[in-house]
Design a protein around this nucleic acid. Structure first.
Lengths: 336, 336
DNA sequence: TTGACAGATGATTGCGCAATCATTTAGGTG
DNA sequence: CACCTAAATGATTGCGCAATCATCTGTCAA
């Protein structure tokens, strides 16, 4: 009644255990006749390989580690979904870690994940501690940073420039005649900081920057917080005529609060979101947002790991920039 | 330069390897003096246990398997977040599987996860195939079904009744004077089917059921699809005066489309969502929804697995019903 | 003082597999 | 026909740990 092992399958098909192992991992090196007998025996016995034993013997597992700051941030859910689509159906599996937006938590988690001898590691952002970077660089597996760009990735990075994305969005708003454009930011993680930097750089270039226009909170983003923050903003800066939000939820909240206050969009207030999660495009008026390739980032990161594990070399370009797309909608269109 | 093993730690601290192992797993069985020396050596050498070797030797891993139908369905993101909160910081880790809403895919995935010798399995729903049920029942670890209730769980089930939740919501709408209440359903997975059954049972009890009021699509839910479905619905049933949606995104879409068409909420149309994901409560008017304890379900499921692994017995009540909360808001309030 | 006993520690073994090296077989060459 | 080569298969070993059983030490009662 015990779980069959390679030896059992070997006996059943009249070959040695190692031939069974080869038939499974590298079928071309086993003759067709044997291969078929082996597969028949596997089927008959219901043999399933023991991952722990394989990992111990080969010093290499089929686990792909994914470290993200949060699971309740749906941006990372989409990344995970994209990665999962590529990975499901292969021999690889996904083990997840939640760093809670803390570089130190992340640093503590990395050794644990490395002892899994993972087939690859996907990790959010570029703001690892120096120690984390060293551990990852020394890891004997592909490492993919995601959601950002970098000239100096640990191994490979797949993402887009948060700085340029927000810069383009803000430039668009200025071009449409908005002047007192606020930055409304939640959580203030490294990527939000970069969006702030992009905003700031464009605003300063046009002589429009004003500290008073910055409204931030460490809380996580939500529609509700968007509504609150618009209230605080208007108290502080009554002549504000535009809002660039670091997140779509916040943008929807800002829009709903504008409607409640009879502030016309875009005549009195321009609104731009970030991530283009779906609701913004359906609002009335439709809200401009920066579409980010979240699922594709996950998929490309996973595909890179799969490729490296089949022997493909590191590409010459280790900075895979998938870009973004500013979706201009009614909420920021004042010119025709 | 090699990674230190238990033997190395033992040498460093002047004890045998097995004592080191004991100091880590069951410190009480090692004298305080030795324990301290061992921990000092572990620290000094940077020893990290090898999970694969431990799994192989003990036939038991620290992996908790979580099988959900989708990662892009944010309901399951919240479940995962809840579970993760409980698990992070312990020795356990989370490995995820995406069944893609297919019981057969699920059935194929279960053997793979079982060979991990997981510390526990969390699996969505009760609609496993007979074969899946058998495999899970035979698994040498706790198994937690989630997102539903059942008198006959495989091991334990943590969730709420989708049937009762929708029944209560629909009863509330009827009580508020709505009569031609449509059911708008996306995806039509087992839980949506149960919501439909709850809707149907109440509608029939009041003599209000009408096949024409059912609007469903196999597509995944979104705000956009909600808008489209309201269009189809009104074409088919112009006298429709209420909509019960299987999902908040759909409800928001329905509400936005009503606003576009100048259909007054709730005077001309009552709207109720499901899950209470956050946006509904902020809409104007605020949309009624059924709040579901997604994160708590994940957390309780994880906690049960942790408890069982520390030796706690199976509880007498294996059906842990966390309930739901109908959040009555303006979108369905016609009476005072 | 002796023996019994419990607590603390150690030695041995095997988990299931893949890496490594060894052996066999078939096919081709001069 | 002897010889060589490459392909196909097998035997042995060890990965790092925990289970099991064995041994040692000290304490206490009779």
């Amino acid at each position: 009644m015990k779980k069959p092992t390679l030896v059992d399958v070997g006996k059943e098909s009249g070959v040695s255990a190692i031939t069974v192992s080869r038939a499974l991992r590298d079928p071309d090196r086993v003759s067709i006749a044997l291969r078929e007998r082996v597969f028949a025996a596997i089927e008959k016995l219901g043999y399933v390989p023991d991952a722990a034993a394989a990992t111990l013997a080969s010093n290499r597992s089929s686990v792909i580690a994914v470290l993200v700051p949060s699971f309740s941030n749906y941006v990372f859910s989409d990344v995970l979904a994209g990665a999962s689509n590529v990975i499901e159906g292969t021999k690889y599996s996904v083990q997840i870690g939640n760093t809670g937006y803390s570089a130190l938590t992340e640093e503590a988690m990395i050794p644990k994940f490395l002892t899994l001898k993972p087939a690859g590691i996907i990790i959010a952002g570029v703001d690892q501690t120096e120690k984390s970077r060293k551990m990852l660089a020394g890891a004997d597996c592909p490492v993919v940073q995601i959601m950002d760009t970098s000239d100096d990735p640990i191994d490979v990075i797949v993402g887009f420039s948060n700085f340029l994305a927000s810069a383009e969005a803000v430039a668009h708003m200025i071009e449409q005649g908005f002047r007192r454009i606020a930055f409304v930011g939640t959580r203030m993680d490294p990527r939000t900081q970069q969006r702030l930097a992009g905003y700031r750089s464009i605003m300063e270039a046009h002589g429009l920057f004003d500290e008073a226009l910055l409204v931030t909170t460490p809380q996580k983003s939500s529609v509700e917080i968007g509504r609150h923050l618009l209230g605080s903003l208007l108290e502080k800066v009554p002549d504000c005529d535009g809002v660039f939000c670091n997140n779509d939820d916040v943008a929807v909240g800002v829009a709903l609060e504008c409607q409640r206050r009879n502030i016309r969009i875009p005549q009195d207030m321009g609104i731009c979101g970030f991530n283009d999660l779906g609701t913004t495009s359906q609002m009335q008026p439709a809200i401009t947002s920066v579409n980010t390739p979240r699922a594709e980032i996950g998929a490309r990161a996973a595909q890179y790991i799969l490729d490296r594990n089949t022997g493909l070399p590191q590409p010459e370009n280790r900075n895979i920039n998938l870009g973004f797309a500013l979706k201009v909608r009614a909420s920021t269109q004042r010119k025709t």
